[in-house]
């Protein structure tokens, strides 16, 4: 590979990795907090992407799509948590997997019914459709904007987690939800907000990736697999782990896709296996 190609793939990988971070951070928080296995998490990415597609089609503007994609996913996360998922917190993981897997299938099939099974393109926001020169190097403006936007969100999230009372309750809750409730904090509300924010971020990941890879009904299940890999690589329940894991998996996938395009997916799992050999609890995991 030439230097330029490597740099190009590295930047692509960082962009994909930041999207993977947004996708996975909710999943890792929710598992860390409630030991809840959510197989419907990829659905929120799917909903974000299809909302972006529909809104950009209806309004002709990707900017509206950027607002509505995460919002739709957050609302669906909240409704499913209130109506269904909260009744499964006390159940064994197998039951949670069955219920959330069923939800994921229902959403996927509904999308096929409403739209069709074919992949569709989503336009890049007009303002960001150009290219950027970095020295003699040319790079799509939208991809850079994705990295920038995700980095801003990562910083905001970090502040919310480390510097607010809600963030402290969330971190404390991943150690013992019982002790958090003994301090007079309504843990159910903490769960609810975690679902809302985590769902919104997965929806944002879907929205941001829609112009890059288009939309199709099976992108949710694909995203779910990636999200679990990121969570395991980063260490369950860890915010920093989701960021590092997302970037690592994004870069591995991007590099592999130029070396061995057919095996790019496989390389993700290879990277996971390597990380687990060295650090069984993940990069930032507590054993």
């Amino acid at each position: 590979m030439q230097g330029q190609v490597i740099l190009f793939q590295l930047l692509n990988g960082i962009g994909i990795g930041m999207i993977y971070f947004l996708l996975s951070v909710g999943l890792t928080m929710i598992f860390g907090l409630m030991r809840f296995v959510n197989f419907a998490h990829g659905t929120l990415y799917l909903v974000g992407a299809y909302t972006a597609y529909s809104v950009s089609l209806l309004t002709g503007s990707m900017w509206w799509a950027l607002a509505f994609g995460p919002l739709a996913a957050a609302v669906i996360a909240l409704i499913s948590e209130r109506l269904i998922l909260r009744h499964t917190y006390e159940m064994p993981h197998e039951a949670q997997i069955l219920v959330t897997f069923a939800l994921a299938l229902i959403f996927q099939e509904s999308i096929i019914l409403i739209f069709d099974p074919l992949a569709k393109n989503v336009p890049v926001p007009s303002l960001l459709s150009g290219i950027v020169f970095i020295g003699s190097f040319v790079y799509p403006a939208y991809r850079l904007a994705v990295v920038f936007a995700a980095a801003v969100i990562a910083i905001l999230l970090w502040f919310a987690l480390e510097r607010t009372r809600f963030g402290a309750a969330l971190r404390a809750g991943s150690e013992s939800t019982e002790m958090v409730s003994l301090l007079g904090i309504n843990v159910q509300k903490v769960f609810m907000v975690a679902f809302l924010v985590g769902g919104g971020l997965a929806g944002l990941a879907g929205t941001l990736s829609a112009p890059l890879r288009g939309v199709e009904p099976f992108m949710g299940s694909e995203a779910l697999g990636v999200a679990f890999v990121v969570v395991v690589v980063g260490g369950i329940g860890s915010f920093t782990g989701a960021l590092l894991g997302g970037l690592l998996i994004g870069v591995v996938q991007s590099m592999a896709s130029s070396l061995w395009p057919e095996g790019a997916r496989l390389m993700i799992y290879g990277a996971m296996a390597l990380v687990l050999l060295v650090r069984p609890a993940g990069l930032m995991g507590r054993s």
């Binding site: 013992s176 019982e178 003994l182 301090l183 309504n186």
Partner: peptide, 27 residues
């Protein structure tokens, strides 16, 4: 529910303390 009982003004220091190891003393 537990949080409502705590909010009425009852605090329990549980056996084995239940401190949050990954939070600072101040947090």
């Amino acid at each position: 529910p537990t949080h409502a009982i705590a909010s009425l003004g009852i605090s329990l220091v549980p056996e084995h303390r239940g401190i949050f190891a990954t939070l600072t003393v101040e947090e």
